[in-house]
Design a protein around this nucleic acid. Structure first.
Lengths: 204, 204
DNA sequence: ATAATAGTTGACTAATTAGTTCACTATGTT
DNA sequence: AACATAGTGAACTAATTAGTCAACTATTAT
């Protein structure tokens, strides 16, 4: 009973966009409310602080990305193709973002994590959790590739950590330079880390 | 003639520390002045804004790091050893920082760059410049390693970009997770990207 | 010594910020 | 119809913020 509203969702969308296109620190509660078309009284009705809102928005954003990752990393797809598709998806996505915002924005979690990790414990934990999930997708693809004899990776977790660091590093470079071309080397770099032979590097 | 003072230097030191241990957004002019023991009037005597101060501090910080990098990347040192030494130096440095601050802080330029690149054009440019210099150190080591037949790297610039992305990605991961152990894989990851054979991976 | 000047200070303004309060309104339930 | 309640809004406070200013002080060159 009582009134219904999508203000909560609008607030989460607004905070995600503002943080991603700017930064956590430059995103004020007033800006969030303005962008969401919501008054401050309502903000504090739903959330107790900016960091709580950000944490919920992060979780929601991750949930909605999972379906896509499940599709890309489907065990039905040959393991190295999963990784290649993931890189292609990421490249296309960043291109679209640049088209729309005039800016390459990189990875929302990584940029936010680097900014707030020393100050916002709650956000740091949530981001860590999401990055760990991402790593797991890579890890299982690597393990499968190893099992299939495509690469030699007796420690898939270690390789996954390396690849994630490289991947996030590239996305951050692309953000800093505002240049999607940085991302064109994503696959070849990952395959170099995995020790994939030249031959297998060719697109299937 | 006139008075002399080290207030300008104190302001630059203060802003560097505050941004690195926190973030650009959370660092206010009042905080900077307090930490530097300088009144706001003096701040505005030397600088016209926080971003101008940050840009000058970034430049000064880079200048003081260059001597160290020149030593590590000396052409007298075998090329792959330069890279190994660089990784060791970085690891030790981050350990010391964690000892002192209770926090792994990662790379000052990269974290700041990711935060402000969409908003502070001047800082973005300065950071881009510094990251390009860093890349050049790596590039020349890679070129020398290629020339010496230690690795196959016909495009040293591309390899340098990959390695820098990986290296900065790792440092950022270490910052987010507050864990120096993340950095233990630095060398092996870089050598994997370079395609260094197992044998050469052993410490000289 | 003193005048020119580099640097300091504290009090000030105006804007922005986070957060509160409470009367009000719309809607599902009975 | 009317009641309980989920959500709204506008005005408010108090703190923090960036930035200004003019009088003041210390130093150095002459």
């Amino acid at each position: 009973m009582g009134r219904v509203s999508d203000a909560k969702k609008r607030l989460m969308d607004a905070v995600s966009e503002l943080i991603w296109s700017g930064s956590y620190g430059s995103t004020t509660i007033d800006h969030i409310c303005e962008r969401a078309g919501v008054k401050k009284g309502s903000f504090y009705y739903f959330f107790e602080s900016k960091s709580e809102l950000a944490a919920e928005a992060l979780e929601a954003g991750w949930q909605s990305k999972q379906a896509e990752l499940d599709r890309i990393f489907s065990p039905m797809v040959p393991p190295l193709d999963r990784i290649r598709k993931y890189c292609e998806f990421s490249y296309t996505f960043q291109r679209e973002i640049k088209e729309k915002h005039g800016r390459v924005l990189g990875c929302p979690q990584f940029a936010l994590g680097a900014e707030v990790c020393t100050q916002e414990d709650r956000l740091q934990k949530k981001i860590q959790e999401i990055l760990d999930y991402k790593r797991k997708y890579l890890e299982s693809a690597i393990r499968d590739a190893h099992a299939a004899g495509l690469i030699k990776a007796p420690d898939p977790a270690a390789k996954a950590r390396m690849i994630l660091a490289y991947y996030e590093g590239l996305l951050t470079q692309a953000r800093i330079q505002n240049d999607v071309d940085v991302l064109r080397e994503t696959v070849s770099g990952i395959f170099a880390i995995l020790g994939v032979k030249e031959k297998e590097t060719a697109v299937a």
